[in-house]
């Protein structure tokens, strides 16, 4: 309810409501740091190892691939996840992610035994497609994957390429005209 009201008060109702993995971070002890005004993205390397970052990048880029617009990797999503876990997560949260990533890596190993990161983009798509369907149909219970995916999607759409190219953003439109030829106004929100 508080979440719901917060959205109303900020006048930024965005739909696709679900409690987010990032929201959970705040409850895990990041609040003290939030008050200090540190800026995310400032710490590297972080708690995720090179191997973990490779898996994060491979899965994130399969969820949000490069199309006509930037993919998750080009949008800096893996670095955002690294920063969230390193700068804001407490040890429980970091452990949840590291354990979850290890299990995810195993679950996404191909039938031939090749690691997900070693697969070609089309093979990754096939493996992730099957796994994603199993999780979201409830056949496989994997809360971590849901959190992981939600965080990737949020980080992507909040990134500059995700926001400006994929959804269309303009800092200051200058005027409000409620009735226009649509072709004249392709951008959808301001700051």
């Amino acid at each position: 309810m508080v979440h719901d009201l917060m959205l109303q008060r900020r006048q930024v109702f965005q739909g696709l409501l679900a409690l987010s993995a990032v929201g959970g971070l705040a409850a895990c002890g990041g609040a003290d740091k939030a008050a200090s005004g540190q800026i995310a993205g400032s710490v590297a390397p972080g708690v995720f190892t090179g191997e973990e970052m490779a898996l994060i990048s491979a899965v994130a880029q399969t969820i949000i691939p490069k199309t006509e617009t930037a993919g998750a990797v080009q949008a800096g999503v893996p670095e955002t996840l690294q920063s969230l876990a390193t700068d804001w997560g407490d040890t429980d949260f970091q452990q949840y992610w590291k354990t979850g990533l290890a299990a995810l890596g195993s679950a996404l190993t191909s039938e031939t035994g090749a690691a997900f990161t070693q697969l070609s983009p089309s093979e990754r798509e096939a493996v992730l497609s099957a796994f994603d369907a199993q999780v979201f149909s409830g056949e496989v219970d994997n809360g971590f994957y849901r959190d992981f995916k939600a965080t990737v999607v949020q980080a992507y759409y909040m990134s500059e390429p995700g926001a400006t190219e994929e959804l269309a953003y303009e800092p200051v439109p200058g005027e409000w005209i409620g009735c226009v030829p649509l072709s004249d106004f392709p951008k959808t929100w301001a700051t």
């Binding site: 979440h3 959205l7 006048q11 930024v12 109702f13 965005q14 739909g15 696709l16 409501l17 679900a18 409690l19 987010s20 993995a21 990032v22 929201g23 399969t62 969820i63 949000i64 691939p65 199309t67 617009t69 798509e125 992730l128 497609s129 994603d132 979201f136 995916k149 939600a150 999607v153 949020q154 759409y157 909040m158 995700g162 926001a163 994929e166 959804l167 953003y169 959808t188 929100w189 301001a190 700051t191």
Partner: peptide
């Protein structure tokens, strides 16, 4: 309204890849 995405946005998104977009 169309508005700036924030935390919580897209958390229930279906699918992956091009279909997710």
């Amino acid at each position: 309204q169309f508005s700036a995405p924030g935390v919580g946005w897209g958390a229930g998104l279906d699918g992956y890849g091009r279909s997710a977009l």
